[in-house]
Amino acid sequence: MNIFRFLGDMSHILSFVILLLKITQGKSAAGISLRTQELYMIVFCSRYLDLFWNFSSLYNSFLKVVFIACSSAIVYIIRFKSPQKDTWNPELDNFPIQYLIGPCAVAGLLINQDWTPFEMIWAFSIYLEAVAILPQLFLLQKQGEVENLTSHYVAALGAYRGLYLMNWVYRYFTEDDYLQRIVWFAGTVQTGLYIDFFYHYYQSKRGGLSRPVKLP
């Protein structure tokens, strides 16, 4: 465990807290992509299947449960709970996620570490996580202007990815046997997706002003 990894996980948790606060306190899921949240739920449920047979640390196992619980709670609230479910707009949030899930499933079957069922599922979850933010980014793009909490949410997720990238660089230089091609490739793609958002986030937040983020 290094500081980048730890801060990455913390900012991942922060993103859940921001989103849960937004939809429970604000009573609205406007601007939040249920599609992205469903993808995250699939990602965590498939990747953390190994909760049943792997134990790396209490920290890891605890966070796995937290991630599954938070993403499921978010999906449940937006899909089934009033008044939040009435604020979700299926016409705006209509990214065809089958075109993300399908290719990721095929990639998981073909490109994985050692051809065991769990390695295939695990690789699938890594690929799917890389693109899971796309429906959210497309939704923001359509709306043009992004509410503050929503922009903080995406920024926290982006920070989590950036910190994980630094964690990999750090581990590569400090550990002898550390090589993870699949994770590095998918993680770099994933972090790249946030670059445009961060540019606009920085533009609207600099100077201490708390203006909403505007996207072209």
């Binding site: 990894r5 996980d9 991942h12 190994d50 792997n54 790396s56 640390s57 890891n60 966070l63 796995k64 991630f67 570490q113 050692d114 695990w122 994980y164 964690n167 046997d177 550390y178 090589l179 993870q180 091609r181 994770v183």
Partner: peptide, 10 residues
């Protein structure tokens, strides 16, 4: 270098 099999990241 060996490809890492143990999953110690989240």
């Amino acid at each position: 270098l060996r490809e890492m099999v143990e999953k110690d990241e989240l």
